[in-house]
Every structure is written in structure tokens, then in C-alpha cells.
Design a protein around this nucleic acid. Structure first.
Lengths: 134, 134
DNA sequence: GTAAGCTACTTTGTTAAACAAGGTAGCTAT
DNA sequence: ATAGCTACCTTGTTTAACAAAGTAGCTTAC
């Protein structure tokens, strides 16, 4: 059974596709990568764990189909390094930690995030209430 | 002459392609649309004007190749409505203003932006200084 | 002991947004 | 008339998130 429901159009107003807002998916572009670097910087983490932690931070429903490709990409870029370790219960886990290069990339991401966030906040602040009384 | 220069890789560390940081391009995904709605909400604006205003707000070097497709898309979605007006000097301008639906989309964007921004800020705050000095 | 369910990792194909690049055309000044 | 600016539009490329589907180890229930 296909889970795709009535994609009304391609733009900002919409909507439920498999239960998840698809606007978010666009807003997240490029951001997840930095968040994952940041969480790994707190302490080494494995993929499944990241999906839980992202959720705890409020980034709900980030699918494994997003996380694992990012991890593979980051590893290929040598921003993170993986290491298999046995688990006390369950399959082995691939723990990733930042490389030096990865730490630099995290700094860069943080900087760029600020460079985006501030203008956007200003634009929203000035444009948000122009039309007035909701 | 192609302007494409040594794309070293595809990820977060990099860089100069035709003189513009390409990380930014990913971070902007979905955000520009909301910013444009917000600026138009301040007062009706035309494409060329938007590129100037975005720059003034700190979103530098947003190309017209980004802006005009967004305007066409928003118009097709009936979030904005265009109207040609003569200019005192130069070619005619297509002024866009928000529709009611566009105003609702702006509210929605603002909400989603907050839902993304807060977790990301928290993640960066906790992960940013874990590795310590610098 | 075997079936169900959870943990954990991986891959493929689709969708969509930003952008470079290139183009059209009106208006102004030289 | 021709150069330069204003203003708009379009095509093709790149890339990230995601759904979906798959593999396999381990644990618990029966």
C-alpha cells in the first residue's frame, strides 16, 4: 500500500506526505549535516542513537534514510571516523567520532548558520507583523 | 567559458564555485521562499528589488536565478499576485503582493522556522564547545 | 527451538530548491 | 547608434532529505 497521499502541489503550503510535513524537509537541507556533526562532537555516537537524540532535541521524525547517508558522506569526506563496537544487547554498533577536519567543518557550519539565521530572523521580524492583526 | 572551478567534493567543507560559497546554498533551501514572502508582506516588491533587499538584510549574493523561479512558483500557488507597473526610469516592473493564502503561508513558514531554529541552536550550543578550546 | 519483535545498518530512486549561465528587451546617456 | 543599466525569464546541474525496502544480529515468548 502506497503511503503517498494527495500531494496537492510542490510549494510551501503543503503538507502531509506519509504523515510528515514536507516543508520541513526543505528547511532542513544542509542543516542536519551540521547537527549531526555537533551531536557527535558531544560524544561519539552511532546512527540509530542519532535518530533518537535528534528527536529529543526537537527535530522529530528524522528518518534513518536521512541519517545513514549523511554518515556515509561525512565519513567519505573524512569529517568523521567510524568504529564498530559490540553492544551489550543487540547488534554491533558503528560509533562515529569527529576528525580534526570534522571539527573544523563544525565550526564552519556554526558560523554559516549564524550568517543565515540573523538575516532571516530580521526579515521575519519586520515582515511578520506588517499585515497586522492576524 | 565555463565558470566551474575545481569542485573538490560535495560536502560541508566546500566552497568556491563561481565565487560563491555553496554550503550556503544548501542551508538556504526552503528559507528563501519564506523570506521573500515576508519582504513582500512589508510592502509590494518586484524581483530585482528583492535581490537588493535580501542583500541589505545580509543574505548576500542571492542570484536572480534563485529569485525569479521562486516568484513564479509562488504565483502559481497563488500565494502572491503580480501586477505590471511602469517605472519612472527603466523598464516596467512586476510588483508582487501577498494574497490571503500567501499570508497564511508566511505564518506557517514563520512557525516552522522557529521549530527548526530552536533545536538547531540547542544542538549547536551543547555540541559546539564540547571539544573545548578555540 | 522457532517465531516475533527490536536494534542497527545499508541502498535505491524520487523530489525539489538554489544556482550559474545565458538570454530578451526597455530605457538612458553619450 | 551604442554602451550600460534595469528588469525579467528560462534551462540544466547539483545536491540533500526522504520513503521504502532490504539485511542481519540479538532477545523474548511460547
Amino acid at each position: 500500500m502506497l503511503n503517498k497521499v494527495a500531494i496537492i502541489s510542490t510549494s510551501i503550503l503543503l503538507y502531509k506526505v506519509g504523515g510528515i510535513l514536507s516543508l520541513r524537509s526543505q528547511l532542513l537541507k544542509g542543516i542536519l549535516e551540521g547537527c549531526i556533526l555537533s551531536i557527535i562532537n558531544m560524544q561519539p555516537a552511532y546512527g540509530y542513537e542519532l535518530s533518537v537524540k535528534l528527536q529529543q532535541f526537537g527535530l522529530s521524525d528524522v528518518s534513518e534514510g536521512s541519517i545513514y547517508p549523511i554518515l556515509l558522506r561525512l565519513q567519505k569526506e573524512e569529517l568523521i571516523k567510524g568504529e564498530m563496537r559490540a553492544s551489550e544487547s543487540g547488534p554491533k554498533r558503528k560509533y562515529y567520532k569527529l576528525t580534526e577536519k570534522g571539527y573544523e567543518a563544525l565550526q564552519l557550519f556554526t558560523h554559516h548558520w549564524e550568517l543565515i539565521k540573523e538575516p532571516v530572523d530580521n526579515i521575519i521580524e519586520q515582515g511578520g507583523n506588517a499585515h497586522g492583526s492576524d
